[in-house]
Structures are given as C-alpha cells and as structure tokens.
Design a protein around this nucleic acid. Sequence first.
RNA 1: GGAGACGUGGCCGAGUGGCUUAAGGCAGUGGAUUGCUAAUCCACGGGCGUCUAAAAAGCGCCGCACAGGUUCGAAUCCUGUCGUCUCCGCCA
Length: 435
Amino acid sequence: MLDIKFIRENQDVVAKAIKDKGTNPEALAEVLSLDDTRRRLIIETEALRSRRNEIADKFKKGKDDALVAESKQLKDKLSKLELELKEVEDRWLEAMYEIPNIPWEDVPVGAGETENKVVAEWGKPKKFAFKSKDHLALGEALDVIDMKRASKVAGSRFGYWKGGMAALEFALVQFVLRILTSEETLKKIADSVEKGYSAKSFIPVIPPVMIKPDMYRKTARLSEEDKNERYYLQQDDIYLIGSAEHTLVSMHADEVLDIKQLPLRYLGFSTCFRREAGSYGKDVKGMLRLHQFDKLEMESFTTAADSFKEHQFLIAVEEYILQALEIPYQKFLKCTADIGNPNARGVDLNSWLPGQGEYRETHTADMMTDYQARRLNIKVRKPDGTTELVHTNDATAVAMSRIPIAVMENYQQKDGSIAVPKVLQEFTGFKDIKK
RNA sequence: GGAGACGUGGCCGAGUGGCUUAAGGCAGUGGAUUGCUAAUCCACGGGCGUCUAAAAAGCGCCGCACAGGUUCGAAUCCUGUCGUCUCCGCCA
C-alpha cells in the first residue's frame, strides 16, 4: 500500500504507474473521492466525540439532566456516523490495495513478459555430442521421477522425486545454506555490489506454510487475482502459502526493529503451494510447473537508504549460486506490467534448460520498498529516535523443481546418467545418478 | 478437544467506572550542567485529523490483543473472537 498523502500530492506519478502497470485505471479517482468523504466524516465524528468528552468531564462535579439528554442524543448521531465512516474506510482500503507501487526509475515500460529486457548473460548453452533428452525422459528412465503414480495418488501437476534426485534436493539445501551463512563468501558478493556493503549472514528459518487471511492480505500477496492461485482451507479459515516470503515478511508485523538489527536477512525453507489455475495447457509435461514444490527463499528488511543495494545484493547471491552450479542463464530487468503490483523493481534469472530448448524462469528478485511494510506496520527506530517504515526485499535462492530439472538436463551424459555438479558432490556423497 | 490463568507504550510494569493528560522504571533522542567519561536535571516519544506551500508548534480525536455491547462517561463491567501460558486428553 502507498501513503495516502503521497497519492494526494503526486497524482500524476500514481496515474503513470497505473497506466504503465496496466492495473485498474478507476482506482485512483476512487481512492481520492473516498478519501475526501472519509476525511469529512472524520471531522464530523471528532466534533461529536469532543462534545461528548466535554460533557462527561462536567459530570465530575455533579449530574445534570439536560446534559444527560444531550449526551444521549450525541450517542445516536455518533453511532450512525461511525458506521458510515467504517463503511467508507473499508471501501477506501480496498481501493488503496489496487493502487500499485511506483516503478523504480530504470524499470522499462512494457505491456508483458516479452518486453522484459535482457541485461546480462552468463555461460553458453551446452552442445551435446549425443541426442539430449528432457528431464522427464531422463527421470523416468533412471526411476528418479514418477509422475504417473503421483497423478494416481494426487492428480495432475504432482510428482515424486525419488532416489538420487531426492538426495540432490537435500544437497542443494545444504549447499545454499553454507553459502548464505558464510560471511566470508557473502563479503565477496556484497563487495561486488558496493565495497564494504554489509555481508551479514542470513538466518535460516523454517516458517509456517499456512497463513491467516488478514495477515496474507497485509503482505499484498492476496489480491482478488491472487486468490485464484492460493489454496484455502475453509474449515480452518487459513491459506497455504505460495512462497516462504509470505510468512517471512509478515514475521515482524507490528514491530519496531532496532536499526542495529538491519539488514535483517532470512533464508526460509518451505514447501510452496500453487493452484496454477490460470495455466491450463501450459507446461503440462514434466515437473516444471507443479502444485507443490520446495523453495529456499531470501527475505531482507533494510532501511530505505539501503533497499536498492540490498535488492542488488540478493540478485548477486542468485547469480553466485547459478554460476557455482555452472548453469547458463540470462538476467532480465522486468518491465512495468510484469513486476507485479507491490513491486518497485523486479529481476528474473532464466536458466538454460536443454530439454526445453529455452531459458526458463528459475529465480526472481522483488524490490518492494515500503509497500508491504506500510500495511504490515513494520518500522525501524533510527539513531535520532524517530521511526520509519522498513523496506523489504525478497528473492529466490533455489526453487526446487526447476533447479533440479536444470541440473538433470544440463548434466545429462551419453548413457542417460546424470553427473552431480562438483559443488554438490560433498553433500550427495556420489558423483553420478545412474540406473 | 477439556479446565484454568492472562493479554497495558520499544521493553518491564501499576492501574477494579470520572482525581489517568495510561503512574513509575529501563532503553532511546534532543537540550542544560560539568576538564573528559560518568552522574544529575529538563523535554520528547504511537496513529489519524486540523492548521501549513511543506514542516514544526498548537488544538482535537483515537489508541490498554481484536470486534461488539452496557453507561452521561470504559484500560476498568458484559459478550464474542484471536493469541500466550499452565494442567489434562490426543499425537509425529
């Protein structure tokens, strides 16, 4: 959510953001008109309350029947006004959620995914001296993927990872955990962003995978559109998370953080749940798009001054991981329509998947500025004693079905076996996944 | 799932219907004083509205888990919800 004062004073900026992001064009006018009504009602109710307090004060000296009558009358008027005010405020808040975050200055204006800009490329697609296969063919032959039985048991878009590939996931977890808790490694990465930038370790977290509706709303990840994508457990009025981000960012709701704690970095490991309601017919083959996958997610809380650097830092971490795994990728600066409502900026890394013959999204980094923090009410106390909203950043460390797929397809060998990337071998304890 | 206790500011903690402008303490920030440090003293401390070009100051309203209710008046009484703790039950 944006600051209403900012919206009032910068209507042209907000209107441009709405246009560039392609969100509801009515929202701005609605917010402003509801805001006018809201403030008018506030003034009226406060006048009545003020008079009521005045009367109550006089009763300290003695009772007065005329004043009792007046006060009773005030109460009637007040309860009507307060009801009206609450309705207007609810509607205003709904409209406020529809106003998107303002895109950062370097975000390209564009109407969809195809207008994202490639800003960097690392590695080259490998040429195989034999006929390469996709992960499903490889996995079924090696008996490390079983989608047929998953479909019998759970339905479409589920899979079993088995044997060597299940072990590979645990190896990836340990590998990433080691990098993100090593200040020595992080220092190199942080210095690449800006000499001397904080190399503070990430705190590993295993967060809840369920979240209350109200809290979900406040993370700006439960818009009407988002709801189609979420699993909701009616019996318990609770949602399954789509990413660890959702329960990590809300962890500090209604808190005032000490500036010495910042940057506060978490590495969350969780299963992620997605209905994939809008993706019928897309990626139906294989493990690329599932209802359920595990993910290591980075989440940072920083001051406003550091948030852009932190965003770059998280991207640098993502790149470090892909480079260590020797997976070729392209780096995209996402355009206004593709970054999403709460983002000020977004960067994707698309990894080369030989079996698909294309680069596919494996990482995403979101810069949220104070958009999430405002509704979650997360602040930081600055050295001068005042408080300001924190800025939040989130980014993928490793998304499990996609990186394992990238490993399978990039590391496949002529005999159909899969070589384990060097950096993972100490964690798997084996060098190949064979029949 | 059952029984009980509890939920007050950044933190601790008093407050059982109007003497509360939420006491007092700790931490923080600004200032005064003092060779330095420490100590002492004073002030400030959340949100919204109003005023303002913007702010500050001022004024008003709200704020004692959340939502309702009773009352001229609620942190205080009542109801519901959520959460925490203790015990019992169930359970990996």
